[in-house]
Amino acid sequence: MNLASRITAALIVGFARAVTAVRGVWEGIAPVQEQRIYFANHNSHGDFVLIWTVLPPDLRLRARPVAGADYWLTSKLKSFIGRDVFNAVLIDRNPETRNVDPMAQMSAALKGGDSLILFPEGTRNTGQSPLLPFKSGLFHLATANPEIDMVPVWIENLNRVMPKGALVPIPLICTVTFGAAMRLEADEDKANFLARAESALVALNPERKN
């Protein structure tokens, strides 16, 4: 990372801490340097930033978010943050226009030894249900990389900090809970795997626990 990216990263992390006092809860897995695929619920553009903030700095450097090129390449600032600061794997979400296969992009990043952070709902969930049905990308990743741990990550409260369409954030305490790692089981089909992944993620929701 060059100096401008480092400074921007520090500013973003500092701002996230000031607004949310975010705390990582390592419930099912320890914060150690291992190659992983983190998958999280998606309510806000800031979701990735919160996960990034609670990761210890050495893990943070190797954890790349998977994000939509249609959002992150629309302005110079966004593309600087997306590419240079977050080192995102930018995928084209539209199957008709894309000329690179997102699975190939993600596999390349994993081959390079990096961890991935992805939001298998595919888009921001702005409704009342806790999760949208997962897209199949997570299953294809698990099939292609059966030896990499997949870690569910529940982000709590960020949708209240920044509801859809809000211009300023409301400071509220957020938590990021990391669950136990899971892998594709032998002869597990797509529907079963995605259902298991969804319930592993929803189980981390603090509201469910009370």
Binding site: A21, N157, R160, P163, A166, V168, I170, P171, L172, I173
Partner: peptide, 23 residues
């Protein structure tokens, strides 16, 4: 204030009121 608001039932409809309270 950040701690207190976290435990309240305030909704997205209160966003402007809460933003005014804090800022």
């Amino acid at each position: 204030l950040r701690e207190f608001l976290t435990l309240t039932n305030t909704a997205a409809a209160d966003h402007w009121a809460l933003a005014a309270a804090v800022f």
